[in-house]
Design a protein around this nucleic acid. Sequence first.
DNA 1: TTGTTATTGCAACCTTGTTGCGATAAATTA
DNA 2: TAATTTATCGCAACAAGGTTGCAATAACAA
Lengths: 117, 117
Amino acid sequence: MLAVQEFFENSDYAVSVVDLVNHFKEEMNKATVYRILSRMESEGMIHSFNGMDGLTWYAACKHCSHDHHEDQHPHFQCKKCGRVECLEISLPIPKVKDHKIDSEIVLLVGECNNCQS
Amino acid sequence: MLAVQEFFENSDYAVSVVDLVNHFKEEMNKATVYRILSRMESEGMIHSFNGMDGLTWYAACKHCSHDHHEDQHPHFQCKKCGRVECLEISLPIPKVKDHKIDSEIVLLVGECNNCQS
DNA sequence: TTGTTATTGCAACCTTGTTGCGATAAATTA
DNA sequence: TAATTTATCGCAACAAGGTTGCAATAACAA
Ligand SMILES: [Mn+2]
Ligand SMILES: [Mn+2]
Ligand SMILES: [Zn+2]
Ligand SMILES: [Zn+2]
């Protein structure tokens, strides 16, 4: 589990679970990676969301703990390099007639700073 | 293909591809459903997106054709009844420093009109 | 009718993700 | 320390969504 923890501590970006399984494939079993990720998520160390591709992505939590999860921020995926990051901003939840809206899942798509020529 | 077309014409809601495969399982093969959906999507009759569950959902297009797809609207999923609908509104694309944002994938989650007691 | 193209059924396959279980490691307790 | 309990792990098998190759059929055109 420590290796996975360090992986997140040393990265500002989110990572897809597929990449993670692949990255650790010589060190640990696929099932172990999935189990570590669920454990870390339930302890408020990381959070998960879906990327454009439909895959599950994970990223380090900034201000969460075991009993206080708050990861309602939008995410950004770069079309060119594929990198995904958490955006530490809060978007207004839109009002829609006849709908009681509790939360908002947002994935912004575009080009990151590195990829803009 | 006609049966699937009619299915969309008679519904205001989106439908998950799993429900569709299940709904047509006596009439046609799973592969056929998937192929019909891709064809209909490439012809601008329907569009697809991801629900909370990670599944692929499809909904009828309102103003699209073979060479003009414009399905950038947000979607809404009711936590209680599970129904998913297209919202014919346009949300402002947020500006984020150091990011060139081209599009925005939004899934609003809450309670629909029917489910609010 | 005959040849050509588009659609379908079926089975096999790929991928993401989960689960049961025995083995090993870590933490408790005596 | 030694025995016991608990947590973690590897492995293999499985489940579910989704895709693909191929032969059969249907639709279409000449
Ligand atoms: Mn995040
Ligand atoms: Mn829609
Ligand atoms: Zn980039
Ligand atoms: Zn509802």
